[in-house]
Write a protein that binds this DNA or RNA. Structure first.
Lengths: 235, 235
DNA sequence: TGAAATTTTGCATTTCATGTAGTTTTGTGG
DNA sequence: CCACAAAACTACATGAAATGCAAAATTTCA
């Protein structure tokens, strides 16, 4: 089959880029709601109908690029190192993701605009949360594939949800207060590592008996263990 | 001023209920996308325009009721008991929430339908995630109000995000697999308590020096402390 | 060059959502 | 019981998102 992209593919890429660039510019200039799809298409010199053959919706034009970051995180998890603990693996994946985000200046510039839009337009916020949520589901799957026999479904979900949830909430809240991207990233990283540190110290509780889980689901052996627990009185 | 609601208010309530009931029934019968707003209005015997004076959008008709659950959780956090640790307070709030959800059969029936719709319609999933996210932000605020001088912003966000994130992801994933509401609730509760247990054993790391936070942000004193910390080497 | 495949386009249509202006219903005070 | 003000509702018009379809236009390949 073809090696070099070919004119048709190159043109498609150019059109897609023109559309996203025009969209970002217009959103910044006039606001998201005030910008119509037909204006975006006009600015990119294509018909309105063509816009929708590139992006399923007006919102999607903002999120099409983030896929590569997601894939990197998934790849990191998939390449578990020999002898690496579950939490160690997650720590490495989190670090790799934050490092990649922090290092790329061009991406960071766009992220600023996208971030501002996401923070201020509810429908975009919802879309972003959905994207992140789907990512978490993929992460859970990847984690289970990389560490079979060490995590049952609920445990994997708890670990991923806890770490990503902490980073997300901390990051969003900081971003909402108008902090710089650097501060936002730092807060997210810090929150994730706080949760990881807690998980690192205490292996998940002993497997509950009556929990049939399709897979065997045994208690994951982590690095170390220490004080069992002292649960507070009651509910 | 008026004590008893008054006819006007009662009628409004009836109309709102009629609208939600009609919407749920039609959504179930014909699917969400296939149901138009005008059909819902027709079934509830009001004009299409009136629908939008009750609900800002077609999606909102599904989520208007969940507000009371949110308020209960917030109230629990606000009523911190004397001497209660931060994690203990959160544990109690989580338990109260899950107990309330598990106990009310009428709510559970509706939750079934809503759940199914949320799981299958992306725009509804996005809306639900947004709602949950806003709830988390309110929780962070409430937690900081209830425990001033014990948590800085990032720490509060990490704790809430971690616990809720774990419960959410575990619950959604189970729900997606078609598990019963009981199983979904159990998995959510279990995941939340797993994260809480981890946090309980390890107090957040010593306050980082160069972190100016609008509020003093001192190291959170939890109920008990033990192994100081084993912070991971570096980043 | 010419035929096949694919992309783009214009047009029609549907639905969500909002603004406006006018009518009906409700609460209140004489 | 009636009249008046406030509110809730309705009908109508409008704008924009999104989709389907068939007719051009463009690329690919023989």
């Amino acid at each position: 089959m073809g090696e070099m992209p070919g004119l048709r593919e190159r043109k498609k890429l150019r059109t897609r880029r023109a559309l996203t660039a025009a969209a970002l510019r217009l959103f910044m200039e006039k606001g998201y709601e005030q910008t119509t799809v037909s204006e975006i298409a006009m600015a990119a010199d294509v018909s309105t109908r063509t816009f929708f053959s590139y992006f399923a919706s007006k919102e999607e034009v903002l999120f099409h690029t983030s896929r590569e970051h997601i894939d990197r995180a998934l790849r990191t998890v998939a390449e578990r190192r020999a002898g690496e603990s579950v939490i160690g693996l997650l720590t490495r994946a989190i670090d790799a993701t934050f490092d990649a985000l922090a290092d790329n200046p061009e991406i960071r510039r766009n992220v600023m605009v996208v971030n501002h839009l996401v923070m201020t337009v509810p429908s975009l916020q919802a879309h972003a949360l959905l994207l992140l949520f789907d990512t978490q589901r993929e992460l859970v799957e990847a984690l289970r594939r990389a560490c079979p026999d060490e995590l049952d479904l609920t445990q994997a979900a708890a670990v991923v949800g806890g770490v990503v949830g902490a980073a997300k909430l901390a990051g969003f809240i900081r971003a909402n207060r108008g902090d710089t991207p650097e501060e936002v990233l730092a807060a997210g990283r810090e929150a994730a590592e706080m949760t990881l540190a807690a998980l690192r110290a205490v292996p998940p509780p002993p497997s509950r008996p009556a929990r049939d889980d399709t897979e065997p689901g045994r208690p994951p052996g982590h690095g170390r263990r220490e004080s069992g627990g002292d649960d507070p009185p009651g509910r």
